[in-house]
Amino acid sequence: MVGLKFIGKIIKALRSASSPRQIAGGLVLGMLLGLISLKSLFSAVVIVLILVLNVNIAMAAAGYAVFRLITWLVDPWLHALGYFLLVEAVPLKAVWVYLYNLPLVSLTRFNNTVVMGGLAAYAVLVVPVFILMKRFVVLYRDRWEQKVQRWKIVQAVKGSKIFVWVGRITGIGA
């Protein structure tokens, strides 16, 4: 059920009237949500951005789900990366101390090893993911959309009531 909903979201997003930039924008914001803790102030900011900016919300949700799973899998490495940046990277310490004592900034939980690791990973991935996603959407629409529409699984998904229901719910981002 969750899988169908997820596939439906992606297909609908790819076929929607959203531009490739909006879809890629939704994906990278969702990716940020997935990489950092929801308890962080960053999450609130990102959610506001998703709501306010004209990005594809369905793709943001899909990006969150995918990268949340990836984050869970690579958590030890993110923890190690965050620990390195926060503790072992001595030159950065002054920056962290400054930020830590600023009002509100501590609420971002940047001093958490997994959050910092996720942020660092995001900083590295955001541009390539954005560009690749944009190109992928263009390519998909030009070359693969017709074929994909004929896949039995896609037919099945499109015919399901859940697909229709998901489409209505996520229609806000269409």
Binding site: S37, W72, D75, H79, W96, Y100, N101, R109, N112
Partner: peptide
């Protein structure tokens, strides 16, 4: 030793924080 997804909070409290 943080559990998965929890991470470890590193304190950067100043002397007069």
């Amino acid at each position: 030793v943080p559990p998965r997804m929890a991470g470890q909070d590193i304190s950067f409290g100043k002397k007069r924080g």
